[in-house]
Structure formats: C-alpha cells, structure tokens
C-alpha cells in the first residue's frame, strides 16, 4: 500500500461519513431548505495525474455517489451526478486552468482565485443541476430545480472553499 492510496481511502470514508452523519442533518433555512453536499470535494480534489488513472477515478466518483445514495435512499441521483462530474473533470480543468495544467502538476491550492472559482463553480453547479433534475424528474418543476441548484451550489461552494483553505498545506 502506498501513501497516496491510504490517504485517498481515508478521505473517501471521512467525506461519506461526514456527509451522511452531519451535513444531511444540517439544513440551511434560507429561501427554502437545502443541505450542502461537501462529499463531491473527493472528486474535485482528487490528485491530478496522467490519463492512465482516469478509469479508476471515474469508477471512484461513481462509488462515492452510490455510497451517498445508499445512505440517503435517493435512488441513483447522487451516483449519476457524481460520475458525470468525474467524467467532465478533465475538460473542466482544461477550461479553467488552461491546456498545460497536466505538465505543471498544479495543486488546487496553488492556482489563482479566479481559476479556482471557475473550476469549483463548474463542478458544483453541474453536479447539483443534474441531481435536482433527476430528483424532480419533470420539466414542469424547472423553477424549483433552478432555485434549489443555485442555493445549494452557493452553500456547497462556501463549504468547499473553507475546507480547501483549512486542509491545504502551506508553502
């Protein structure tokens, strides 16, 4: 077992437990009720590597979504949206950090604020939009889906930024 695998396993378990035991009960009562979804930090923060690992990464994205579904009795909505952002992570990173991000082996905490904000927003909004669309499963409730997406994205973004700033290593 090498160090990276252990770190990732612990991160996976801690994020799932934190999500289902704490965050799912911490409802935010501003303009409707929402829960922030911090667990997608696993997908957002997965170490940037060359394309060989992508297969495992996509599967792990699916697995963390499925774990959340298992705990929250929500069919497959978290699994679907997680595997989607897992797959879309590469194009999103190209979009926000520029084409050469793989060569630079850039860390998320070392990127500029603007780049980081674009990347995080893309990932979070895609995830939440997919999730709430699948949850309501009708075009009639587009207003509800959009309102919930925006609101939850905001809270998730704040939480993700906080967590990154707490746990990233200082240079």
């Amino acid at each position: 077992m090498n160090n990276a695998v252990v770190t990732l396993t612990i991160r996976f378990l801690v994020l799932v437990l934190f999500q289902v035991a704490l965050l799912n009960h911490m409802t935010v009562h501003i303009l409707g009720d929402t829960n922030p979804y911090l667990y997608i930090l696993f997908i957002i923060w997965y170490p940037i590597t060359d394309s060989d690992d992508r297969l495992i990464f996509i599967f792990l994205s699916f697995l963390i979504g499925l774990s959340i579904d298992l705990f929250s009795d929500s069919g497959g909505i978290h699994a679907a949206s997680s595997v989607l952002i897992g797959y879309l992570r590469k194009p999103y990173m190209r979009l926000s950090f520029g084409v050469g991000y793989e060569q630079q082996a850039q860390k998320l905490s070392q990127s500029s604020y603007a780049q980081r904000f674009i990347y995080l927003s893309l990932m979070i909004v895609t995830h939440h939009l997919t999730m709430y669309s699948l949850e309501s499963f009708s075009f009639a409730s587009m207003g509800y889906v959009l309102q919930k997406t925006l609101l939850t994205s905001l809270f998730t973004l704040i939480l993700v930024l906080l967590t990154i700033s707490i746990f990233s290593k200082k240079q």
């Binding site: 298992l70 929500s74 497959g76 909505i77 699994a79 679907a80 797959y87 699948l134 499963f137």
Partner: peptide, 29 residues
C-alpha cells in the same frame, strides 16, 4: 473512459427511474 462513464451513468439513471416509476427503492436503500 467514455464507455465506463456511459455504463455507470446508465446504471444510476436506471435505478433513479426505477425509484420514480415503481414508488420504491429496490436495492439501493
């Protein structure tokens, strides 16, 4: 990569649709 994504995405869509149609969560509960 794309094929794996497609497979997993379709699987989760399937379980989601199932939970909507049959009014129950079959095995993901």
């Amino acid at each position: 990569n794309f094929l794996l994504f497609l497979l997993l995405f379709c699987f989760s869509l399937g379980t989601t649709i199932q939970s909507h149609i049959f009014h129950r969560n079959s095995f993901i509960n």
